[in-house]
Design a protein around this nucleic acid. Structure first.
Lengths: 209, 209, 209, 209
DNA sequence: GATGAATGAGACTTCATTCAT
DNA sequence: GATGAATGAAGTCTCATTCAT
């Protein structure tokens, strides 16, 4: 399903570079990472990067494209398949996000927020493509959230428009990213998670692994 | 009240540079703006900027400090004095934010989001001071939002913890900024505004000037 | 004799600036000292410096002129009047120079060498005037040294041409400055002093206060 | 023997830059030469310089390191192998130094002195490494001079401590550099050479090619 | 006349990017 | 095809110096 098998060595190299760049851009922003660093972190020659990507910006776009979808899958698919209950899915999402951020915050002392939106905020003004790609991912998240909202409404826990509620849930999640990043407190993510659970009518559900 | 009169010429120059830089950083990001551009936009010599600020980054910090407070005041004080009703205050905030963004979006085709958080996200990793300053402003917003929440609870429209609700309202606002910026649709701000009004128990209130 | 009494306040200010600049240039080189620093060290406004000196370089020239002579006097006149014996005069010179350098080296960890020659080496290429002025001082030193050499020859301790010997003594002194500065060991000055005393036929004379 | 063959292109470029920079720094001082000038004189891009050297100062350090040794070799090794007589070696050294300075003085009207000490005096305060490196070279010169002194003593021409005499000879040489530079008269070097020959007991030896 | 404020020119340095081997 | 070397275009910053008050 979400597994890509790369036939050629070139494709593997390309994916590897994207993956390394994604990590670096996430941690230290697009402008904070030099192409040299990407090259040495990926253990390829700098010219190799330019063989696969026209630009540093083109690399960023590739990051947004490939890792955006991958991240989404990781977050949303993790619990979806098994748990059908909407509150469990929502709690799972927040649990996952919180875990990742809390761990990284312990290691590096910083909260990094949503990698895709981060890049989009930094590059969106110059690169409409990045912004559009990020918007696409944003919309996918909203769709997932709307499903959760729909199920919660169906379960009689919430009322109103599932799509509107889905959008609110999504915005709240992104607000949580911003809030956690600015305050350097990953627990802000949990706050948003709890508020989200309340919003879909499950105030009592806890966010735990 | 919120008016500062600068005695010396230096103070005026300094404030002017900050103001110009704030606008540029907001529109085109910290890294997208060269110090030369700030200088020529402010109609001062580049060296004058370095007379008042140690660094380009120090200038950004000054922007966050001075304009953070100023922006807060503009947004939150605007309706506070006259309207005591919480829903009016909240609607006023969103109306104001939406107006600014919609207008700028028409002019420039882009949504810029929260200027302070934008800078904090871009510089926070390197400059803890910027992050801390932004967090302070974030907290101030939360305090305002919590007051609104408190009044709504007191009015019997909402229930629960005013502080938690205030945090949620704040996060939702910042999620709205991110959402609007990524999608380039200022109306996302209105969506968050409507959701916020619902959260404090005034779903029927409209956001209008 | 060597005392200048300044009638006007302007002359005092000018002399004060020169004096402060001399100390700074000596310690940290011409290019290592900004005009701002001279101003604040002299406790005058920077524009005041430009009232008295056309240039930073003009200031350096003034330093060479005024302090060159003053330093010479300090070094050579100190023991001349009283002690007529040439070895005592030579020992006195070296004692004085060594004391100053040893003390400053203890305080600041660096040996500064001859202030005049230092400026001349740094500026001579661009500013013939500085070089010429320094050469004049150099010659004055040589004249003093030649007198010492002459007396030593007259006393039957040395032989040969007094002027040639005077030149050698002078060069040795300046070699001592270079040597001490590069090695950061003020005692190199004493080495040169002992060699000089040997050269004029007084190897047994010690350099003490 | 003293020839270095550089395997890689990078090593050649690096050595070339150092060589060009050495000449420029010697002629016009560290602060008198812009990195742009080094780049254009070396016919490389400025960024290439920064590929090999962290700093302009780091370049100066490299100059001191590489050219210090090279210069020493040129000066001291030139006559050592063939002529065993100490006075011939000393005369050879002075002849060589004088020739270089006299020629350059004719061409450019200035005497440049010792390139290593020049840099050390200009940078020593800020860069202990440069000073230390220069001191090392100074010591190497002293060692050579001490050998000459030792041989002269062994030949019965001079007496006393060979090391002390070596130090005096070295200081005299550096005094000659200073003297020649300040007076812009290369013949001052010859004066020191003659005095040095006297000091080791060969007053009749002439300094000629 | 003295001072804080402002300037212009140029310094150093760092990128992203391309060229030869 | 991959790699070390080289480049050009900015970018940030620091001077010495001059202008208004």
């Amino acid at each position: 399903m979400n597994v890509q098998v790369f036939a050629t060595r070139g494709e593997r190299t390309r994916a590897h570079i994207i993956s390394v760049a994604a990590g670096l851009f996430w941690r230290r922003n697009f402008h904070g990472v030099a192409v040299d660093e990407v090259a040495s972190a990926a253990e390829v020659n700098k010219a190799t990067i330019y063989r696969y990507f026209a630009d540093k910006r083109d690399l960023a776009l590739a990051v947004v494209k490939q890792h955006g979808i991958a991240t989404l899958d990781m977050i949303f698919r993790s619990k979806t398949a098994e748990d059908t209950a909407p509150e469990a899915r929502l709690a799972g999402i927040y649990h996952h996000i919180y875990s990742v951020h809390a761990e990284l915050c312990e290691e590096e002392g910083d909260v990094h927020g949503c990698p895709i939106v981060g890049l989009a905020l930094e590059l969106g003004q110059d690169m409409p493509e990045v912004r559009v790609e990020a918007a696409r991912i944003f919309d996918a998240m909203e769709a997932h959230m709307s499903e959760i909202a729909f199920d919660a409404i169906a379960a009689g826990r919430a009322e109103g428009d599932a799509n509107a509620l889905g959008r609110t849930l999504t915005q709240l999640l992104h607000g949580a990213f911003a809030s956690a990043r600015v305050s350097a407190e990953p627990t802000r993510i949990l706050d948003a998670g709890r508020a989200s659970l309340s919003l879909i009518g499950y105030p009592e559900t806890e966010i735990t692994g």
